[in-house]
Design a protein around this nucleic acid. Sequence first.
RNA 1: GUCCCCUUCGUUCAGUGGUCAGGACUCAGGAUUUUCAUUCCUGCAACAGGGGUUCGAAUCCCCUAGGGGAUACCA
Length: 473
Amino acid sequence: MRVVTRFAPSPTGFVHVGSHRTALYNYLFARQQGGKFILRIEDTDQKRYVKGAVENLLSSLRRLGIDYDAGPGKEDEKGPYFQSRRITVYRKAVDQLLQKRDAYRCFCTTERLEELRKNQMAQKLPPAYDGRCRELSQEESDRRARQEAFVIRLKTPREGNCVFRDIVRGDVEIAWSQIDDQVLMKSDGFPTYHLANVVDDHFMEVTHIIRGEEWLPSVPKHLHLYRCFGWNPPQMAHLPLLLNPDRSKLSKRQGDVAIEDYLKKGYVPEALNNFLALLGWNPGEKNEIYSMEELIRAFDINRIVKAGAVFDLQKLNWMNGQYIRSMENGRYLKEARQWVDAGLRDNPKIETALFAVKTAVNTFAEIPEKLRIFREAPRSADEEARKMLEDASVAQVFTEFLLELEKVPEIDEAIFKCIMKKIQEKSGIKGKQLWMPLRIALTGEMHGPELGYIVEYLGKAETSERLKGHLNK
RNA sequence: GUCCCCUUCGUUCAGUGGUCAGGACUCAGGAUUUUCAUUCCUGCAACAGGGGUUCGAAUCCCCUAGGGGAUACCA
């Protein structure tokens, strides 16, 4: 049987990194199995609808290189892939349930339900629907339905246990007494997650449900629905949650949670995928850097970890740095350029400056700061630096350097290196004594990118001028 | 409260009855480099606790504790 997985987000504004990881796992598994990967938009809650959320979702997936075989913009005979456009399907399904008396109309008002819950809480009882409408006669139900608002609830078993197997968790057992008569159809005629999910997964022929752990407790409801419909349930894998450093569920309060935020901050899509893929799974090898193709090959649904994983920004930063450093130069320049601020962007030597900082950044967002040295005139050196300039050898080095500089039409990194070698041989001055005064004179600082890049960037004229300035002091 | 899930270095992931408990990030030290960064090397650092089972337990079982999730006409 051909594997079919799906990513089924609700469009509530942004894509949570945990949600993205779920998408990624579904994608990796489908691709690896030569299966089909579906994107389904779960927009059944009209109150939570956020404008632009779907577009945002689609663009995130595209930027991260996760393509789907069926979904918005890629409709096929199993669609549509927006739940809001499948209402008749759910209607039909729920009618079938009603007819078989596996579901019933519930006329209880929100107020009564709230009251009920409050009382149960006060008595330290688990809040649950008390089943008042569960055994209403067909006649009464039909009569009231003509004039009262109602929801449709699933008639859940009251006794025994629901036992099921989860790919990640193994066997799980939950008592039916714990399962509430879940609302399947809201009074506005829209289905709830539970109904829509089961119906869609069936008709879209989903074989593997890979989703967050928060769904584990509602599995019995879903299984019961499958049974009522006479359908075979798919296999399930409930993923561990992503956590804050304090081990609570990853939330906005403690940093960025939207995948878009990381993209905006200059993280590399491949690094993000790589990092997230390894949060909750790993192939058991020493290597940690994986391209998407390698992830697809190595992914093993049976090796998914059970425990929640803290989202460790430090490791992401490190990994992102790895991706930047090994990035092909053309792409690096193209990406990095977007982070250069206006003052430098049109500088003809900007590429030299960007190469100079390639090994110094972990994210593209760090580029403006690292480029500061190229943007601003040299600072007046601090005391330690000034002392280095007072050394007797300094004048000699500078003079020699200027002499050599005059011999070339323009200077670049390679020529600079030759010149330095020459001076070293001629004067016997080397190491820190040779290089540091130049650095200080040219940049005003004792740290920075390789001098060759700096000199190439400054060019012959500017280099010469800055050195002369110091000689004349 | 009730139910479910989880528990190996600070973090992440290996390790499924016999390992010096391993890798990566972080941190510390060192090497290379003109400095910083990169790169390389070395080091610090963990089986939540208690009972069993077993010749032998991080690995199997039970209890406790801690953490998380779910308890909606949200997903």
